[in-house]
Design a protein around this nucleic acid. Structure first.
Length: 566
RNA sequence: GCACCAGUAGCUCAGUGGAUAGAGCAAUGGCCUCCGGAGCCAUGUGCGUAGGUUCGAUUCCUAUCUGGUGCACCA
């Protein structure tokens, strides 16, 4: 529909290309102002005429054209040209588009590969509220890019290598025992880790022991690696429990340890390129020219550091997956780190680094206004959040709909959905102050609100016995203002998905889901669907059907399932 | 000190150059004998400050204030 209008305008305007016209065309802020609008300010200068007059000329030109028969009316309002599409034709085009199975999808990705590095918790540490953000955002980006025809590789870059494991081994051998670790898992490992730091303050030689154990790991010592692997297995079991609850999975769990034999090659590449510099006993790449702190490659004891392993991972991924983009979903506090690493890749002669390596930062999570801290106990674990949300939902179900079948399964979908939605609704970059009160409020712009609307759609369709969705309807029935507003909302979906991908911003989809739910509830309150007149019932039922379908698809892009009843 | 990010309604936030800046929360009042009341409707002071670019700026530029984050051997 928009393209047809562009053609009509283009036929009457020489000064602008079709692309320029397309960029200028907008949807008016209010329905009274028409379905599409074209502002003529830009033309005023080129044509040396008042914009109102230009608008009037274009109007006259278009009205004389045969192709314009789908337009009901064109009005000049100030410098704006407002187009009113013949309503039944407009309704038909929107309904038919939304009825398609692949509505919102696209083949623009053309099977090209995108890697997403996200979640990536540190092994032997608890999975807390902060880790939830990268996990949830990364998963949603995976869904969004998949919808656009990309082949997406989900990589969990576990923090599973480094001196902290030397510390853990020392602590385990000194104060731990197998039974307790088996029983309490990561919780016990955390205790051992904290205990190590307390003891090391009194007895610094423990740090040397820790480094020695890590050195053993690097040298392939059987005992060291066996313990390390055990700790890793324990951690993964707990992480997977959380991922299962979230309904998420990864294609690869390739942690830092995977790259431990690949860092020598990185150092060689940098050295061969003449970029490796000595500085304070360490090896660095100087980035002063680019207004950045130097990128540390080797520590003064010759061992590698996370930047080295990130570099190794980039080369490995490029060679293995031949990605067109590699996304890193981490906190904004790591911005400098990724800027440095990406710059080093570029300086090694890889021009693709400039537009293929992308850091996707998100804001800091704090708890009741204070920083998260394991030691001070100011921490909330992801699993507890999810379980608490589910249990609160269960209470609400018991109160509102005690007869509901599959109560537990439904409570899980809604509770998890509430947590996911809460994390995806605002722009990633905003800092988050975690508050139970806010998370457990399920009114208004929330996941449960959208799910509720979906369940309502399901309920309505369920009651229309014998109804089969079909686009063979009387389109003029859906020309009232509430139906039209709902349809316009729904028809935004394809653009919403693309915008979300362009900005790497799932919140665009989440906002859309709420807008759609609000438009539907308005429509629902204004129109009775299950009426006696068959043509009215069929038309409205179809609108319910495409609303339901589009809500479901939008929510799936956020990683959220919609129960049929709740 | 330098760099990056954010400042919009009491609170949480939409709005990436266009028409009278919008939602939700909280508060108050209202809503069909009828398709799900986790819903719908109604009620309000606001773009941190000062310049600049533009026909037009919440949006772009500069300065400034406030808050957050980062600045090599942690990730």
């Amino acid at each position: 529909m928009k393209n047809k209008i562009i053609d009509l305008i283009a036929a009457n305007v020489d000064a602008l290309s079709k692309e320029e016209i397309s960029d200028l065309i907008e949807i008016p802020p209010k329905p009274e102002l028409g379905d599409y609008a074209f502002p003529c300010f830009r033309l005023a200068k080129a044509m040396r005429k008042a914009p109102q007059m230009i608008a009037a000329d274009i109007k006259a030109g278009i009205e004389a054209m045969e192709d314009a028969s789908f337009i009901d009316e064109i009005r000049v309002e100030g410098a704006y040209l407002n187009f009113y599409i013949k309503k039944d034709i407009f309704v038909k085009s929107m309904v038919e588009a939304a009825f398609e199975d692949n509505f919102g999808a696209s083949d623009m990705g053309d099977g090209q590969t995108i890697c997403i590095d996200y979640s990536s918790p540190n092994v032997a540490k608890n999975f807390h509220v902060g880790h939830l953000r990268t996990t949830i955002i990364g998963n949603s980006l995976y869904k969004i890019f998949s919808k656009l025809g990309y082949n997406v590789v989900r990589i969990n870059h576990l923090g599973d290598w480094g001196t902290q494991f030397g510390k853990l081994i020392v602590a385990y051998k000194a104060w731990g025992d197998e039974e307790t670790v088996k029983k309490d898992g990561v919780g016990e490992l955390m205790k051992l880790y904290v205990k190590f730091h307390e003891e090391a303050e009194k007895n610094p030689s423990l740090n040397d022991e820790a480094r020695a154990w890590f050195a053993k790991m690097e040298q392939g010592d059987d005992e060291a690696l066996k313990i390390w692997q055990w700790f890793k297995d324990i951690s993964l079991i707990e992480y997977k429990r959380t991922y299962d609850l979230l309904g998420m999975d990864f294609d690869y769990y390739l942690g830092e340890s995977f790259y431990r034999d690949k860092t020598d090659d990185v150092v060689k590449r940098i050295s061969d390129a003449g970029l490796l510099k000595d500085s304070e006993g360490a090896k660095i790449v100087d980035l002063e020219e680019y207004n950045m702190a130097p990128c540390l490659i080797l520590k003064n004891d010759g061992s590698s550091i996370y930047a080295t392993r990130d570099l190794a991972a980039i080369f490995y991924r490029k060679e293995t997956y031949n990605f067109v983009k590699c996304l890193y979903v981490t906190g904004q506090e790591q911005k400098l780190h990724f800027a440095q690493v990406f710059k080093v890749v570029e300086l090694l002669g890889n021009d693709w680094a400039k537009d293929q390596l992308i850091h996707i930062p998100y804001g800091l999570v704090s708890l009741e206004g204070a920083k998260l801290s394991t030691r001070s106990g100011n921490i909330i674990y992801a699993e507890d959040i999810l379980l608490e949300a589910i249990s609160k939902i269960k209470e609400i179900i018991e109160e509102k709909n005690p007869e509901l079948p599959d109560k537990d399964e439904t409570a899980k979908k809604i509770g998890v959905g509430a947590v996911l939605f809460n994390d995806l609704y605002n722009q990633r970059i905003k800092d988050v102050s975690f508050k139970w009160e806010k998370l457990l409020n399920f009114d208004g712009e929330t996941g449960p609100y959208v799910q509720y609307t979906y369940a309502r759609c399901s309920s309505i369709l369920r009651k229309l016995t014998g109804y089969t969705p079909s686009v063979d309807i009387d389109f003029s029935i859906l020309t009232d203002v509430d139906s039209m507003e709902l349809l316009k909302e729904i028809s935004r979906f394809p653009k919403v998905v693309k915008d979300a991908a362009d900005k790497y911003e799932p919140s665009v989809v989440a906002r859309f889901a709420v807008d759609m739910a609000q438009a539907f509830n308005k429509f629902y309150n204004a129109n009775r669907i299950n009426v006696d007149e068959e043509n009215v019932r069929n038309a409205r039922a179809l609108l319910v059907y495409i609303t339901k379908k589009t809500i479901k698809d939008a929510m799936l892009l956020l990683g959220i399932e919609c129960p049929e009843q709740m």
